[in-house]
Amino acid sequence: MSIAIVQFGGSNCDLDVLHVLKAVVDADANLVWYKDADLSDYDAVIIPGGFSYGDYLRSGAIASRTPIMDSVRKMAEDGKPILGICNGFQILTEAGLLEGALTTNRYPKFRCEWTYLKVENTDTPFTSNFRKGQIVRIPIAHKDGNYFIDDTRLANLEDNGQVVFRYVDENGNATEEANPNGSRNNIAGISNFQGNVVGLMPHPERASEEILGSADGLAMFKSMVEHIS
């Protein structure tokens, strides 16, 4: 089992993800430059955070149209686990692998802070090691994290259990104050209908060791590695 971490020009959380997978989880993972479009040897893919192509046009828009995304799409269709973190989430929505869009934060500033998330769905390859309803502490760092989707599709997401993480306060309530960016229904992360493609704005790789202030994000990587082992 091997995990690909896709690097685009402007990715900057790639090495953090690699560190967690190799040094903390002890998994087999490799950095893959976006021009190396063949991912057929890999069992799973992580698209890390950053500012690919300077967020030109729209966050994630340029990266989502590069040839490596055809390989990612093929893996998604084959049911392999695909995770997009922050800019990776933006790239997956821009590529149409996840529904909706990430637009500018309601108050248009870059927010870099700890958030509490409620784990809403533990049936994905990335969340099986959490308890349903568990409250976890994982930081965000973004300006374009305001999750938008129309009313009908939002209702479908909720009904299908595709909402994976929601911004909450420390008591688990999805309040207006706990919503850092204006996302509809406090959505922080979603999956595709099948559940094998997951995207989230918060950074689990920045909360995977106690020395960083929280190790709550580690369960995502452990879940993933268990799933493909």
Partner: peptide
């Protein structure tokens, strides 16, 4: 439709 605009928004 393919790149310059995002039809969702």
């Amino acid at each position: 439709q393919k790149l310059i605009a995002n039809p969702i928004i």
